[in-house]
Amino acid sequence: MNITLRVWRQPNAETEGRMVTYGVENVSEHMSFLEMLDVLNERLTLEGDDPIAFDHDCREGICGQCGVVIDGQPHGPLQTTTCQLHMRSFADGAVIDVEPWRAEPFPVIKDLVVDRGAFDRIIQAGGYISVPTGSAPDAHATPVPKTDADMAFDAATCIACGACVAACPNGSAMLFTAAKVTHLNLLPQGQPERYSRVAGMVAQHDEEGFGGCTNIGECTAVCPKGIPFETISFLNRDLLGSLIKGNR
């Protein structure tokens, strides 16, 4: 198949970007979207054009490093990571728009690459259980009800790709933040820091400049890991709990 790509090109954070059009011929439907970009980059290099910079690493949908907005949708038309999107999802002759995640806290570094350091800082603000190495009791000391363990796991599968932010009309990272709060606050091990965790993480979320959640659900509709919507309600409940309890 042959396709036309319109790609956001921006040399660096300081320079204005623009959409540039490229034709890509003889695309196999079995190619992944990123492999199609690889093929284009090989050609651009040989032609002496700067290849398109895009983030990627594991290419099996788990590391969370890849992610571009394809035709206005984060990660494209399927609910998966960009690396797991294959060209069979597009029609021959398609014109495909490719843009970076857009949000104030995710500044563009180059072309399709953005800086998601804000996520790390949200985790630093409480997204952990304080347990110094070697201080743990036996793994079976605290049974965890299976339903809680399963729900915590569902939330813990977040890969921090940032699609939720890119999709949210408010530029909110609430799904990312809520996934971590839910994961840790559901487990017995997470209880001692339950309220300081949620307060710290929400405060940092706002500090980074993310917007507020309006419960529209676009985040969960594009989340490649299907992080459940209810995590946000869980975060809300715990935050209100922390306000009532007047922690710290």
Binding site: I129, S135, A136, P137, A139, P143, A149
Partner: peptide, 20 residues
């Protein structure tokens, strides 16, 4: 010890209905 450490950190290992 690794399993103990990871469970304490909140790693959501698969569990059975008894919670173990």
């Amino acid at each position: 010890e690794i399993i103990d450490q990871c469970v304490a950190q909140g790693v959501p290992f698969a569990r059975e209905y008894g919670g173990l």
